[in-house]
Design a protein around this nucleic acid. Sequence first.
DNA 1: GAGTGGTCTAGACCACAAT
DNA 2: TTGTGGTCTAGACCACTCC
Lengths: 233, 233
Amino acid sequence: MSDKLPAYQTIKRHVLSRIQDGTWREGDAIPTEEALAREFGVSRMTVNRAIRELSDEQIVERVQGSGTFVAQQKYRATLVEIRNIADEIAARGHRHRSELQLLERTRATESLARRFGIRAGDPLFHSVVVHLENELPIQVEDRHVNPQVAPDYLSQDFTNQTPNAYLMRVAPLQGVSFEIEACTPPASVGELLQMRSGEPCLVLHRQTHSRGQVASVASLWHPASRYRFAGSF
Amino acid sequence: MSDKLPAYQTIKRHVLSRIQDGTWREGDAIPTEEALAREFGVSRMTVNRAIRELSDEQIVERVQGSGTFVAQQKYRATLVEIRNIADEIAARGHRHRSELQLLERTRATESLARRFGIRAGDPLFHSVVVHLENELPIQVEDRHVNPQVAPDYLSQDFTNQTPNAYLMRVAPLQGVSFEIEACTPPASVGELLQMRSGEPCLVLHRQTHSRGQVASVASLWHPASRYRFAGSF
DNA sequence: GAGTGGTCTAGACCACAAT
DNA sequence: TTGTGGTCTAGACCACTCC
């Protein structure tokens, strides 16, 4: 075996795999430094470095005097976080509601096939959902989903659960790439968002990866007058 | 004195301040772990932690067998990086040129005063620069600068050096907050960017902090048809 | 008071770079 | 060969949480 890995790396991997295989879930305590030191036959300082790095990476959270716990999954992202739009609206103290406009089986166009890494004509799932904040439309979510990653996508109830929340649950997020642009919306989107004519959209195109495949390609359209991306660091 | 700071923190601060005050410049070697351990009267492991954290933060770069060196300044940022627009254009293999439209001393409006944490009427510097990629305008940079942070701002040549590059050099970046919006540009901006009427702008509003103060408040206007923000993780 | 993480020591051996 | 960083040990004391 490759015994070349430093001990602290081995310990990091061990803890990570326990979290990823579900043995230790969000909020669970993981073994103490002392216990891990005994288990791996290393000194406490070595374990300390391993766990401190996981803590820096926000994989675990440490509380002095109490213990080390698996952190809540965070999807830092768009410079901001990839937050569920429902949570984002709730955080503002407003009410979220979503309307399902479309949920269908379709076939990949040339352009979609390229982005998913499949062949044109291969099956894809497609959904269009409008998200409302206090009954005012704030986002049109136009999403294509890889059936191999989420085969039950079409049978979900997307008025109770956003597509994003569902995908996060069934497909562990590995990576995200995105683009933000400003553009004039197509008429159909302008209508769903009840925009005055001539108002631009702020659009986030996002592609998520899971289990080595492209899981989902989404375009999120927002009326310029009602939405901004913000962040700091 | 507050002796409460852990030793490794004290060492980190010491190294950081040497870099920020210019004693150690980009590419310079900093003292060895052994030397710092002697200087601060601590063990090498403690110095190692301090410098390793600076290395994680990309403040310094370590080369085994060789030494520790001050890293090139990188401005990770907009979800992406806070890259100098000139570098960004150069990375695409294109030619960057900038035109200085305005460079003046002005006074803070109520709204600017709030953002800078100063009083309305206090002095501010103001610049407007147009950035061109292959002679096509791609960004209008409208920037206000805190004179306390960059007193020599007005005497710079901003056709050879972007305001951003100058500020990065004289004012160590501590933090950034930003907002991205889509909007219809005011006529003056639309003209500078040679936009067709009705085309929206993609705007990045950015506020940078340095030495505990707000250093700069900038609005970066981009024609929607020629610019996107992109990133991945 | 018992258990946990936060920090630190004074050594050690190794891998790698420069010479 | 010498000097540097990379890693590790087997202890230690402290601050904090929980009971």
